Amino acid sequence: LIPWLGTRRSLLAIALLLVLLGGAASLAWERRRTWLPACMLIALACLWLLDGGLIRGSQGLLYERESSYNYIRVVQVGDERQLLLNEGLGIQSIYRPASVLTGHLYDYFLLAPYFAARPEPKPEPSLALIGLAGGTVAHQYTAVFGPVPIDAAEIDPAIVEVAREYFDLREPNVQTFVQDGRYFLARTAARYDVIAVDAYRTPYIPFHLTTREFFELARRRLDDDGVLAVNVGYAGDDRTLVEAIADTVHTVFPTVYVIDSAEDYNSLVLASVQPTDLDTVRARLEGLDEPLLAAVAARALPGLSRWERRAAVLTDDRAPVEQIVHGIVLRYALGVAQGTGEEALP
């Protein structure tokens, strides 16, 4: 019901149905006292017709909407516009008209081309973006690398509309596909220099975008020297989900790196089609002379490490992602209760 009626009217519709059933039962059994369900029916009909007002008011709110997939909010915080989805535990996109960089993990996606074995001195990477949101990464790639071809898959058409209306996503080099990201990769014949996966919704993530089979598909859609970059969240010091995904990626790609963000509760998992080594990648990042890229590299380098394990493997047959997330949340809550954790989830 929710995609057609919205949350408020769906609940009212269920309540109306219960009143009708209760009234029918009362009438059938007693043939009297029908005034009570009749009054309740009238009250519910009035509530149905009334404007429900804001779903969830918040400071700086510019827009809110329930779509078939998400509860969407756009808020203005100073000079920064943010896209929040569902519970609003994480920021899905940031837009600053006067700045390319956001100061968050989104910026690290700009470094992905330099994790290839033989990157061009001035790369012009083709990009597949799984999870468009407000288009932060698409904006950044266009600003830094020029009008490179960008194919962006976003399952929620309402988010695509919000990206265009509130986040100024109008770059002609960005082509949007209103599709599930895995379906998009399975159907396209294109190959890319970089595939960026940022389709996760805090704290849960679609399990079919975390499995070995998905990463095998992504590898087939990468060029011979391509790079995969995956944004994964964590809580406090608990990186169980990051570890599971990095392990799984490592069963498909020869070399895997992890950048732990100092600004967010997120890590960026990067994997190259060709074997690479940490010292070469680190030296390459340290030698970047483009000001924006150099600034991002300076922030990322302290958190950069090579991933060696291949212990856990998530598959289409068994990918207990929700159980992993539940465990993270439970341990986090216990840590807060015992005074050893942060005050709130990211």
Rank of each mutant, 00 (worst) to 15 (best):
L1F: 14
R8W: 10
S10T: 02
A25E: 09
R32K: 06
R32T: 05
M40S: 01
A45D: 02
C46H: 05
R81Q: 05
L83P: 08
L84K: 07
L85E: 04
N86C: 01
G88W: 02
L89R: 14
I91C: 10
Y106P: 15
P113T: 04
F115C: 08
R118I: 07
P121Q: 11
K122C: 14
P123L: 11
L127N: 00
L129V: 04
G134F: 01
A138G: 13
F145P: 03
F145Q: 06
P147R: 01
V160C: 11
A163C: 12
D168C: 10
L169P: 00
R170M: 01
F177G: 05
F184L: 08
A189E: 06
A189I: 12
R191D: 00
I195M: 03
Y200S: 14
Y200F: 14
H208D: 12
E213H: 13
L217P: 09
R221T: 06
D223C: 08
A229F: 04
N231Y: 09
Y234E: 03
A235P: 04
H250N: 15
V252R: 05
T255I: 12
D260R: 13
S261G: 14
S267C: 15
S272K: 04
Q274G: 10
R282S: 10
A283T: 15
L288A: 12
A297F: 01
A300F: 13
S305N: 11
R309I: 04
A311D: 13
D316I: 14
E322M: 11
Q323N: 12
G327L: 08
I328Q: 04
Y332P: 11
L334I: 08
L334N: 13
V336W: 11
T340Q: 09
G341E: 14
